[in-house]
Design a protein around this nucleic acid. Structure first.
Lengths: 155, 155
DNA sequence: ACAGAATCCGGCTTATAGACCAACTCATAT
DNA sequence: ATATGAGTTGGTCTATAAGCCGGATTCTGT
């Protein structure tokens, strides 16, 4: 579940997971994934079902009167899309128009899928390269001061 | 698992581990290695499977909203490539175009593989020599201020 | 100089990504 | 109620890339 992949999305905004991750999905009995917005950068996060259960449970239980927490709830929970996933099959995922817009991949026919161990990120190639070479993005959100309640969470 | 090796990479960007390390791999039941970017210098890191499990688990559990942590996650986890050894016992490793570029070995047909005990490093020969003689590299990243959460980690 | 081992090289095989197409569903309008 | 068309889903095919393997070449130690 690691590493960089440049993959295509078809006209219907579908992409398929690289086959090299298949065994990991099967071994961990994952049959759904969740795709949602990244709160920090114009990119998307893809969680395994089990990972998502933990994150969403924890995040939704937090005190929403804190504006930072509420923003995270909106962004992460409010845009999540659950997708049934058959690891023995083609492992295809649909990206909604709204998520494509957020990640600035409306016009693109290729995306970058980055394996981060327990999750994946989806980036527009230019944004990704700029970020990796130390450049900053117009839309990034810097210096979030995290409330104590989420210091131990990893999104 | 120590020492300096100057070895060749072929047209398909593969290299094979010096045979002198083979017994050590077999004895420790390692059947895969992971190759990824070094966060500090234009070079690559090669971890044994078991070592990688520890590092990646710890690193992916950290709070990704911290920009330094997220950069390390991107660099180390997001560029990792897992590689199984050949059934015949030969230990061949493919270096992706992206990793070659990062380590500045795009045009090279030889690399330096440095055994560091529990991991290896891969360098472009000129960079390695310059670094060993105290010279500085144009692209190195100095003085990372590490957050408390990763002070005890060794990459 | 020779023998054995390690390394390098390139062809062959297999698996996969990506594109194309067919079928089905659903919505709308007549 | 039926026909039309758009949107969605799933299947199949093919070029490409990854994995596997054997032989040629180079290296090392005696």
């Amino acid at each position: 579940m690691f590493g960089f992949n440049n993959i295509s999305i078809d006209k219907k905004s579908r992409f398929s997971f690289p086959a090299k991750y298949r065994d990991a999905f099967i071994n961990s009995n994952e049959n759904q994934i969740v795709i949602t917005k990244d709160p920090q950068y114009p990119s998307l996060k893809v969680y395994l079902g089990s990972e998502w259960d933990q994150i969403s449970t924890k995040l939704s239980s937090l005190q929403g009167l804190d504006p930072i927490v509420r923003n995270l709830q909106w962004t992460i929970l409010g845009n999540a899309s659950v997708c049934d996933f058959e690891p023995s099959g083609r492992m295809q995922v649909l990206i909604s128009a709204d998520l494509k817009k957020y990640a600035q991949i409306e016009e693109a026919n290729r995306i970058c899928l980055i394996g981060m161990g327990n999750k994946f990120e989806i980036w527009n190639q230019e944004n990704w390269e700029q970020r990796q070479t130390g450049g900053s993005l117009a839309t990034e959100i810097l210096d979030i001061v995290l409330p104590e309640s989420i210091k131990d969470m990893s999104f």
